[in-house]
Simulated scan of single mutants.
Amino acid sequence: MDLDVFVAAHRAEWERLDALIRRRGRLTGAEAEELVRLYQRVATQLSQLQSSAPDPALASRLTTLVARARSAVVGSRRATWRDALLFFTVRFPAACYRTRHWWVPTALLFTAVVAALGWWIADDPQVRASIAAPDELREMTRPGGAYESYYSSSPAAAFSAQVWTNNAQVAGMSLAFGALLGLPVLWVLLQNAVNLAAGLGLMASADRLDVFLGLILPHGLLELTAVFVAAGVGLRLGWTVIDPGPRRRTTALAQEGRAALGMAVGLAAVLLVAGAIEGFVTPSGLPTWARIAIGVAAEVAFLLYVFVVGRRAVAAGETGDVAAADRPVEAPVAA
Rank of each mutant, 00 (worst) to 15 (best):
G172N: 10
S174G: 15
Q169S: 10
S153Q: 03
T165K: 04
Q162M: 03
Q162Y: 00
A179R: 06
F177G: 10
V163L: 01
A161V: 14
V170M: 06
A179V: 15
Y151R: 02
F159E: 11
Y151F: 03
G172R: 06
A161R: 03
Y151K: 00
A161Y: 02
N166K: 00
S174R: 11
P155E: 09
V170D: 12
S152L: 04
G172W: 08
A161K: 01
S153N: 01
G178D: 08
A161E: 09
Q162L: 03
A171M: 01
A158P: 06
S160Q: 01
A176F: 15
S152W: 01
F159M: 04
S174T: 14
A171V: 09
F159I: 07
A176Q: 06
W164R: 01
A171N: 06
W164P: 15
A168P: 08
A179I: 15
V163H: 02
A179T: 15
V163N: 07
S174I: 09
N166V: 09
F159R: 03
S153C: 03
G178Y: 04
A158T: 15
S152P: 05
M173V: 10
A179M: 08
T165G: 10
N167S: 07
Q169D: 14
A171F: 02
M173Y: 14
A157P: 10
V163T: 11
A156G: 02
A161I: 11
A168S: 09
G172D: 11
M173D: 13
V170A: 10
S154E: 12
A158H: 09
N166G: 10
Q169N: 08
W164M: 08
N166S: 06
A176S: 07
S152I: 08
G178F: 03
A157L: 05
T165Q: 09
M173L: 07
Q162R: 04
S153K: 01
F159T: 10
S152C: 03
V163W: 02
A171K: 01
G178V: 13
V163Y: 03
A156L: 00
N167Q: 08
S160F: 02
S160W: 03
S152R: 07
A168I: 09
G172H: 13
S152A: 11
Q169M: 08
L175E: 14
A161P: 09
A171S: 07
Y150G: 05
